[in-house]
Design a protein around this nucleic acid. Structure first.
Length: 645
RNA sequence: GCCUUUGUAGCUCAGUGGUAGAGCACUUCCUUGGUAAGGAAGAGGUCGUGAGUUCGAUUCUCAUCAACGGCUCCA
């Protein structure tokens, strides 16, 4: 007998060799039907695998993350079986579960998969799933495994096998399909009730662009049709929030083939948002002791040789323009220009921290396939600033920048974010990172200290630093689940040296400053792209391109509507009149769809009583107000930068 | 940059080897209305661009540009 400890602490005795499924059955049949896998001493196991020793056990169902992963990984095997039936001779690489679903990479030889094939494969998968074939685990010696795949002449699995230790190798078989796999898997294919193969894509073998490209098929499966339907509905909803769709509908930005790829043109509505964001940044930064500067968008080659950017990032910069025997580059970053401003006048320790800010325009030659709406572009406007300080000032300066992030996130209602401490990789010193091992260690410790002492939650990642120093990247998720780096806060010990920047310290000696590069609001492009999805286009009043629309019931009331408009305009409120000869219902609908925060409806009653009937976007009629009274209210809302209630 | 798919009116999309259609939007007219779509008429397209096949190409073929979904990349 062995002792099994359940999550609630209860200990039960079972025959040696009992499976998690057996344990579940002893508790209830209903539970057993839901068990997908089990966590045995913290390791995820097949629910059917015999347990030989005392163990703590947690049954995993669809409600557990590990349960879902097991389900999806098993679905990948099911898909592979269907593919092998349809395309004999196919070779498989790996088929993991992902965030939402699974994929399998495969080499189909000269065959090409089409959308129609996916439908056929789905059908086949459904057929195979209905057979409720068990996933059977089998330990196998390395020699036997090698022989199996040599006979299959499957170079991909042979490659996987090379890195596996004899004695740890397992095969899984379901129906007619056998795969090299660590597992675990769900008990049988019958659990998979709803299947959707979502897309076909190319993926480099082992993720290396020099390698052959394999065919990757993505799919997602569920234990019932209802969840699949809900998932597909959710995807539809997400499409409606896509910043590219909203950006077009709301007149925020446009792209033109004649201008070029990845070069957004900001339309009047988008420009208003840009200006409001800049106003926020300027107010905040001025209060925090920053000074503003303006610098050119181009510079001579030598500047980027000095900064050290060219050797590292030439590929990501637009090719140079030649003039009078000089090469000029469009800038991909603002820092070198700012360093020249720091260096323009001698500095003493009394001038530090020296903080200069600019919404700097940068140009980056991103590969064409990497461009994505406003999120990845070739012309960007960065909420940039550089802080030149000494080591004693570093802690409070770096902390102040972090506090700034939090302040902004509060204003915009950003709740889900992760601070990522990006460190260098000692093996790449001199290649990807400047070769200063001591300084790397020192600055990485300094940054970590700020995060730890301020109690900021963060994760550490290796090999993600800037070439000149460690950084904190802020990862955020848009409302539709898109993850990206929004903001960045970086330490730089390399450029001050290469630019020979210095200040005179208290002992009248020259000293090299540290530089903090920071961009809490990221770039206009990415930030507004994020905000569009975050708010689903329903901007808070202070950001809304048009804040108020005056809707006269008929054009008999146009004069009064203009009076109201004028009163609002004089208070700096962005207002328009809908003077179309349409019924009020139509005007309301149009305005609702444009997601304008407030509608002021004026008709006979309002003219007589000198009031406006106020309708809040998405909320309906909120009653009548005297014009001046209502203006005071909305002005308050705008000044406080209130978010939507 | 690589792989899949796509490109027809401002938008969303039909359609065809014999030089194009719907709905919405737009313009004009009728209607002067009370909280999410009133009615009628009109205007609008070298069918992404270039070449080839053909008596004839928006349709078939090739090239090219761009976009979607992925991979790689992301200072």
């Amino acid at each position: 007998m062995i002792k099994i400890t359940l999550p609630d602490g209860a200990v039960r005795e079972y025959e040696k060799g009992v499976s998690a499924l057996g344990v579940a059955k002893s508790i209830s049949e209903g539970l057993a039907r839901k068990v997908l896998a089990a966590s045995i001493n913290g390791q995820v196991w097949d629910a059917t695998r015999p347990i030989e020793e005392d163990a703590s056990l947690k049954l995993l169902t669809w409600d557990d993350g590990d349960g879902k992963s097991t389900f999806w990984h098993s679905s990948a095997h099911l898909m592979a079986e269907a593919v092998e039936t349809a395309f004999p001779g196919v070779k498989f690489w790996v088929g993991p579960a992902i965030d939402k679903g699974f994929y399998y990479d495969m080499d189909l030889g000269d065959r090409k998969l089409t959308e129609e094939d996916l439908v056929v494969l789905e059908k086949k998968m459904n057929e195979l799933a209905k057979q409720s074939n068990p996933y059977i685990r089998k330990s196998i010696s390395k020699a036997d495994a090698l022989q199996y795949f040599v006979e299959k002449s499957d170079e991909y699995k042979l490659d996987l096998l090379q890195n596996l230790e004899d004695g740890t190798i397992t095969f899984y078989t379901q129906g007619g399909f056998t795969d090299l796999c660590r597992g675990p898997h769900i008990p049988n294919t019958g659990f998979i009730k709803a299947i959707k193969l979502t897309s076909i894509a190319g993926a480099y073998w082992k993720g290396d662009e020099k390698n052959k490209q394999l065919t990757r098929v993505y799919g997602v499966t569920f234990p019932n049709q209802k969840e699949l339907d809900e998932y597909l509905l959710m995807l539809e909803e997400a499409k409606k929030r896509d910043h590219r769709k909203l950006g077009k509908e709301l007149g925020i930005y446009t792209m033109s083939d004649d201008v070029g790829q990845g070069l957004p043109l900001w339309m009047p509505n988008g420009t208003i948002i840009i200006e409001e964001l800049e106003r926020l940044a300027k107010t905040t930064e001025t209060a925090a002791g920053y000074k503003r500067v303006v610098t050119p968008h181009i510079a001579k080659e030598n500047l980027y040789l000095t900064s050290g950017h060219l050797p590292y990032y030439a590929d990501s910069m637009f090719p140079p323009m030649e003039m009078d025997g000089e090469k000029y580059y469009l800038r991909a970053m603002n820092c070198p220009h700012h360093h020249k401003i720091f260096d323009a006048e001698p500095k003493s320790y009394k001038d530090l921290p020296y903080r200069i800010a600019e919404y700097g325009t940068c140009y980056r030659y991103e590969q064409s396939g990497e461009l994505f709406g406003l999120m990845r572009v070739r012309c960007l406007h960065m909420n940039d600033a550089h802080i030149y300080c000494n080591r004693e000032q570093f802690f409070s300066e770096f902390k102040a920048v972090n506090d700034l992030y939090i302040k902004y996130f509060k204003i915009f209602g950003v709740e889900k974010y992760v601070m990522r401490l990006s460190l260098h990789n000692p093996e790449k010193l001199g290649k990807k990172y400047v070769n200063e091992p001591e300084l790397w260690k020192e600055t990485e410790d300094m940054v970590r200290k700020v995060l730890v002492e301020t109690g900021t939650p963060f994760i550490e990642v290796q090999d993600e630093a800037a070439f000149y120093g460690p950084k904190i990247d802020v990862q955020i998720w848009s409302a539709i689940g898109r993850e990206f780096t929004l903001a960045t806060n970086q330490v730089d010990f390399a450029q001050p040296r290469s630019f020979k920047l210095s200040f005179t310290n208290k002992n009248n000696e020259p000293e090299i400053p540290l530089i903090i590069h920071r961009a809490p609001l990221g770039t206009h492009e990415r930030f507004i792209g994020f905000l569009l999805e975050h708010y689903a286009g329903k901007f808070p009043t202070w950001l809304a391109p048009i804040q108020v629309k005056v809707l006269p019931i008929s054009d008999k009331f146009l004069d009064y509507a203009k009076e109201v408009e004028m009163a609002l305009l004089q208070q700096g409120i962005r207002v328009e009149i809908d003077d179309k000869k349409k019924k009020i219902g139509k005007k309301i609908r149009d305005t609702e769809l444009m997601k304008i925060p407030y509608m002021l409806i004026v008709g006979e009653k309002e003219v007589n009583e000198k009031v406006v009937s106020v309708r809040r976007q998405g909320k309906g009629d909120t009653g009548s107000f005297a014009v001046t009274e209502w203006i005071a209210q909305i002005k308050q809302e705008i000044e406080n930068r209130q978010s939507i209630d």
